[in-house]
Amino acid sequence: MSHFGRLAEPDKRTLRRELLAVRNRLTADDVREAATALAERALELPEVAEARTVAAYVSVGTEPGTLTLLDALRERGARVLLPALLPDNDLDWAAYTGEGSLARVQHRGKMALFEPVGERLGRDAVTTVDVVLLPGLAVDARGIRLGRGGGSYDRVLTRLEQSHAHPALVMLLYDSEVVERLPAEAHDRTVHAVVTPSAVRRFRHS
């Protein structure tokens, strides 16, 4: 990617609403085609392609699709851990062993999520991985991530920092969601790379 889209600096809530509105206009074919390209691009990143253990997530709705990538990682021999949302919005983890290992879980007041049904490994399981694939709505030229606002992955990133774990932090987004600048707060942490259907971009600090 040689350039970034430009967004003014409205508040995060407004940005989330605008970005979700764009995603919601995507068709099922758009999402499926992007998911295939996203998996191909992600495997061009050596940290992802060579990872022994990856913490990932199952996309829902019009999020950039992840299942194709999860299966490709498993075929390469990687262990894939997926999150299960806890009542306090923190995340537990369990292994992904194929689509049959997922269950649709409706959380009160939240969207339904696909979560792993296997043995729960604990909140700290994420500190043992080589790569964390992060969901979100946008990333800027500094590597600042805009999440959905629930705080689950802020907790994950804090846990990684406190445990002195240093996995590669990689976002999966659509091309238009890589922007010039996002509003940032003191607790925001930067990611190492972003993968979109057309490209991989690393950030300078990584």
Results as ranks from 00 to 15, higher is better:
T14M: 03
T14K: 12
T14A: 04
T14G: 07
T14F: 01
L15N: 03
L15P: 13
L15C: 02
L15K: 03
R16G: 10
R16P: 13
R16H: 06
R17S: 15
R17E: 09
E18V: 14
E18R: 12
L19F: 00
L19W: 00
L19C: 03
L19R: 00
L19Y: 00
L19E: 02
L20I: 07
L20V: 15
L20E: 03
A21L: 08
A21G: 08
A21N: 15
R23F: 09
R23T: 15
R23H: 07
N24V: 07
N24I: 07
N24S: 13
N24F: 04
L26A: 12
T27H: 08
A28T: 03
D30T: 00
D30E: 00
V31E: 03
R32F: 13
R32Y: 09
E33G: 09
E33Y: 07
A34E: 01
A35F: 03
T36E: 11
T36D: 12
A37K: 09
A37N: 10
L38Q: 04
A39D: 12
A39W: 13
A39I: 09
A39L: 14
E40L: 13
E40R: 07
R41S: 15
R41F: 04
R41C: 14
A42I: 08
A42L: 07
L43F: 02
L43A: 02
L43H: 01
L45H: 03
P46C: 14
P46I: 15
P46A: 14
E47P: 14
E47T: 06
E47W: 13
E47H: 07
V48H: 03
A49H: 10
A49P: 11
A49V: 04
E50N: 13
E50M: 11
E50K: 04
E50R: 15
E50A: 06
A51F: 01
A51T: 02
R52K: 12
R52P: 10
R52W: 05
R52G: 07
R52C: 08
T53V: 05
V54K: 00
V54Y: 01
V54W: 01
V54Q: 02
A55Q: 00
A55E: 00
A56I: 00
A56C: 01
S59E: 13
S59N: 09
V60G: 04
G61W: 01
G61Q: 09
G61P: 15
